[in-house]
Amino acid sequence: MAAGRGPGRPVEADPEAIALTALRLFAARGIDEVTMADVAEAAGVSRRTLYRWFPSKGALVWGGASEADERFEAAWAAAADLPLLDRVRAGYEASLAPLGPEPDATRLRLRFIDSSPALAAVGSELQERMGEHLAAHVSEALGLPADSLRIAALTGAIGGASYAALVWWARGDDPRAPAEIVDEALVPLAGLF
């Protein structure tokens, strides 16, 4: 028995390793063909441990997205003295940079989300919240109402360019970090601000 472990006490699980195992299973066999029991077995954890971290396959795919939103918010606040587009870029860089040393997981997540309306729907509430945060930030920076057409268009352009860049990166094999790809995609938007 491992030191510090009592009988029946579970081994501490690494949620990112569990998610990566699941994503690789989904890629190899198809998401509909893989059960949560298959994921637990492949990851070497009990089903109870798996469900404690991830209540569904959708949660396995969307894992870490809430934390990315929190990192965006913190970076936005920390970059208060920068021009608007630089603040947006800093937010995306902070939210995407710590996606782990394994870019495979991020690529797989994005591929699944982009190819499955059902999986995309799992994260729709989070995406809506992130869009609201961005709209609030851009409207405050520009001194415009958050519900104005200009703010809707600007945040739509930012979100669309960022998402398109990430999906492009996920489908290919570009070795750059996702944040670099988003940064490159946002440069042409500078004139909008």
Results as ranks from 00 to 15, higher is better:
residue 94 A to Y: 07
residue 184 E to C: 04
residue 130 M to R: 13
residue 30 G to I: 03
residue 109 R to N: 05
residue 141 A to S: 15
residue 31 I to Y: 10
residue 28 A to V: 03
residue 19 A to T: 08
residue 59 A to D: 08
residue 14 D to G: 02
residue 188 P to S: 09
residue 60 L to C: 00
residue 28 A to C: 04
residue 165 A to Y: 06
residue 107 R to W: 07
residue 127 Q to D: 15
residue 39 V to K: 05
residue 169 W to T: 08
residue 1 M to T: 10
residue 34 V to W: 01
residue 57 K to F: 11
residue 176 R to P: 14
residue 179 A to P: 07
residue 117 P to Y: 05
residue 89 R to G: 07
residue 140 E to P: 12
residue 72 F to H: 02
residue 167 V to H: 02
residue 118 A to T: 14
residue 10 P to F: 14
residue 131 G to E: 00
residue 67 E to Y: 00
residue 85 L to P: 04
residue 84 L to F: 11
residue 40 A to V: 06
residue 167 V to S: 07
residue 108 L to M: 10
residue 74 A to N: 12
residue 20 L to P: 03
residue 35 T to N: 11
residue 6 G to F: 07
residue 115 S to D: 15
residue 13 A to H: 01
residue 52 R to I: 12
residue 94 A to F: 09
residue 149 L to T: 13
residue 49 T to S: 02
residue 19 A to W: 05
residue 89 R to L: 15
residue 165 A to G: 08
residue 11 V to L: 13
residue 91 G to T: 11
residue 125 E to S: 14
residue 3 A to F: 03
residue 117 P to D: 02
residue 105 A to N: 11
residue 104 D to S: 08
residue 21 T to K: 00
residue 147 D to I: 12
residue 88 V to E: 02
residue 57 K to M: 10
residue 144 L to K: 12
residue 106 T to D: 02
residue 100 G to P: 01
residue 143 G to I: 12
residue 190 A to P: 00
residue 141 A to M: 14
residue 150 R to N: 06
residue 98 P to I: 07
residue 127 Q to V: 14
residue 123 G to A: 12
residue 78 A to F: 13
residue 151 I to R: 11
residue 88 V to T: 06
residue 110 L to E: 05
residue 191 G to K: 13
residue 156 G to S: 13
residue 79 A to D: 03
residue 177 A to Y: 06
residue 83 P to I: 15
residue 73 E to L: 15
residue 153 A to S: 11
residue 85 L to N: 09
residue 29 R to L: 08
residue 193 F to G: 01
residue 86 D to A: 10
residue 56 S to R: 08
residue 58 G to F: 10
residue 88 V to C: 06
residue 23 L to G: 05
residue 26 F to D: 06
residue 33 E to G: 09
residue 34 V to P: 03
residue 101 P to L: 06
residue 69 D to W: 04
residue 123 G to I: 04
residue 95 S to W: 02
residue 190 A to T: 04
residue 52 R to Y: 14
residue 129 R to A: 15
residue 116 S to H: 15
residue 100 G to M: 01
residue 71 R to C: 13
residue 63 G to D: 04
residue 91 G to I: 05
residue 171 R to D: 05
residue 85 L to R: 10
residue 67 E to K: 04
residue 115 S to E: 15
residue 165 A to P: 07
residue 115 S to H: 12
residue 48 R to G: 10
residue 102 E to P: 04
residue 138 V to H: 12
residue 64 G to S: 04
residue 51 Y to D: 05
residue 155 T to L: 03
residue 54 F to W: 00
residue 185 A to H: 04
residue 172 G to T: 10
residue 134 L to E: 09
residue 71 R to Q: 13
residue 96 L to I: 07
residue 25 L to Q: 01
residue 76 W to H: 03
residue 186 L to Y: 11
residue 18 I to N: 02
residue 27 A to I: 11
residue 73 E to F: 12
residue 68 A to H: 01
residue 90 A to E: 00
residue 162 S to V: 09
residue 94 A to L: 08
residue 142 L to P: 13
residue 141 A to W: 11
residue 132 E to W: 13
residue 16 E to Y: 00
residue 161 A to V: 13
residue 32 D to S: 12
residue 138 V to R: 10
residue 131 G to M: 00
residue 44 G to C: 04
residue 185 A to P: 04
residue 94 A to I: 11
residue 169 W to S: 07
residue 171 R to Q: 11
residue 6 G to C: 09
residue 12 E to R: 03
residue 133 H to P: 11
residue 148 S to Q: 13
residue 55 P to R: 11
residue 160 G to N: 08
